[in-house]
Design a protein around this nucleic acid. Structure first.
Lengths: 130, 130
DNA sequence: TCCTTATGCTCTCCAAAGGAAAGTAGGCAC
DNA sequence: GTGCCTACTTTCCTTTGGAGAGCATAAGGA
């Protein structure tokens, strides 16, 4: 074997480009506006129904909610439980994997809350410069 | 004053809905695929030229790179330095704010690297179920 | 002189993504 | 029957995004 990329803890270690591609794809998939907002709702209310989510996630359309939830289900982030009753009742709940992603994004929420003001000021300054 | 939302350290404290709206908007702005990828490149190579970025960020079009960089500049995440030479030379560099956002996203990159396999398996299982 | 090259955009055209609103299924209350 | 409830699905139309060509400028070569 010609030393095929060892797994190390060195953050500066070169990464297998194939892995980097996959990671980029996954980031692109998961760091989506709607995915993030749905993820946050499900973090707050461990389990949620469809209509509840569509009310809680500001501005999402039913189409995008369905699509986002399907993708999240496919990626193993949520479980979809159908209760065979009428009218239909479908519950969505985070998996452990989904919860871990929520925790990973926690830093971004904190950042956003902490830096709202700075961004607002930067925008005003930028817009003033024309 | 009718007690208008105190700033607390309690993570379960109710948040001013206006702040929540602003945070959601900022998240939507910042948690964009291209913004993330550009941010990562700039984290790795503290300062980068336009063409360099377009080569390094896989799959980005010039239009989106320009647009993404403008938005990031407006939000105070990068500084754009134009060197008045021919051919033109423009350098982009993270601000402290941009760097702090990069660190906030660090957890997501780590998560993606750590859970590539799990997501891949979840997808296969989902697709197999039809 | 004219042509090429290099860079950072900008513009145009077309395809894909996404929002709004209406439609669907199917049992239940009226 | 009529209408309601929920979780979608479908249709239509607007917006976003990608591909590729164009532009401005000056140095350097034929």
């Amino acid at each position: 074997m010609p030393a095929p990329e060892k797994i190390t803890n060195d953050p500066n270690a070169p990464v297998d480009p194939r892995v980097e591609t996959l990671v980029n794809e996954l980031i692109g998939r998961v760091a989506d506006k709607w995915t993030l907002l749905v993820l946050e709702e499900l973090e707050d209310h461990r389990t949620c129904r469809f209509t509840e989510l569509s009310r809680r996630v500001p501005g999402i359309s039913q189409k995008m909610l369905t699509q986002t939830l399907r993708q999240m289900e496919r990626d193993g982030l949520v479980v979809r439980t159908v209760h065979p009753v009428v009218p239909p009742k479908v519950e969505y709940c985070l998996t452990d994997l989904g919860h871990s992603l929520g925790e990973a994004f926690c830093g971004v929420w904190v950042w956003a809350e902490a830096n709202l003001e700075k961004v607002a000021r930067a925008r005003m300054a930028f817009d003033a410069r024309g």
